[in-house]
């Protein structure tokens, strides 16, 4: 599903290249649950951003679903966002001015899903995550764990083939974190959704089936569980 060939990323300051990623080459197949781990500054988030096409690599080739997406125009990239990629953030990034329902509905509106289809999909998601009662609340009326549930529901609404999660439990207490990780595992196993997460926690990484260890921009270790 994902092919990274010799991905490099550096920032040039005053003529000196500061490498963030070096020679990253890997393949991620459909249905994998990959955790990217490593110390602060190892380049985890940059790698995830490149995977999410939020940043472009300086060198290298990135193929997504067999298509070279190293530098895509905005329109094509957005098409991918609408149909294939769902994002989950550490700080949830729900839109404060929208209710839970509207937050989940937003990607469907962009995807131009018909209104009855929209309603049923959202109802399903609300049901599945047990947040039906919260659908008319605003994000700031929810706990962190609940907000992240909504965040995941939003990411799933467009029925993506892959979810990119940047420290999804970083702001949560351990009980809530566990709940979220179980949810991810379930999505991966039952729905076959590919998940790539960045995490600091060994425990969280064990929910997945593959761990990429990054240090100073280089893949040190690629472990299958």
């Amino acid at each position: 599903m994902i092919e990274l060939k010799n991905i490099e990323k550096y920032y040039a300051t005053k003529g000196i290249k500061n490498y963030v990623l070096r020679h990253v080459t890997t393949t991620i197949k459909q249905g994998e649950f990959v955790s990217i781990m490593g110390p602060s500054g190892a380049g985890k988030s940059t790698l995830l951003n490149i995977l999410g096409m939020l940043e472009e690599p300086t060198y290298g080739v990135y193929e997504f679903l067999g298509e070279d997406v190293t530098s895509l125009n905005e329109r094509k990239r957005i098409e991918l966002y609408r149909n294939h990629i769902g994002f989950v953030f550490q700080a949830y990034h729900l839109i404060d001015e929208m209710t839970v329902y509207e937050n989940i509905e937003a990607p469907l509106l962009y995807k131009k899903v018909g209104s009855s289809e929209r309603a049923s999909r959202i109802a399903n998601l609300l049901d599945r995550f047990n947040i039906v009662a919260k659908k008319d609340l605003f994000p700031n009326q929810l706990s962190g764990g609940q907000q992240q549930l909504v965040g995941i529901a939003r990411a799933l609404a467009a029925q993506p083939s892959i979810i990119l999660a940047d420290e999804p439990t970083g702001n949560l207490q351990s009980a809530q974190a566990e709940e979220i990780m179980q949810l991810f595992q379930q999505l991966n196993k039952e729905d076959g959704i590919t998940i790539i997460q960045v995490t600091h926690s060994e425990k969280n990484a064990t929910y997945g089936n593959r761990i990429l260890h990054l240090a100073d921009g280089v893949v040190k270790d690629d472990v299958k569980i």
Partner: peptide, 16 residues
Amino acid sequence: AKEVGVKKVLGSYKGQ
């Protein structure tokens, strides 16, 4: 700003 960022990754065009 956040709203803009989120909407962009949810699949909104700049024009929208």
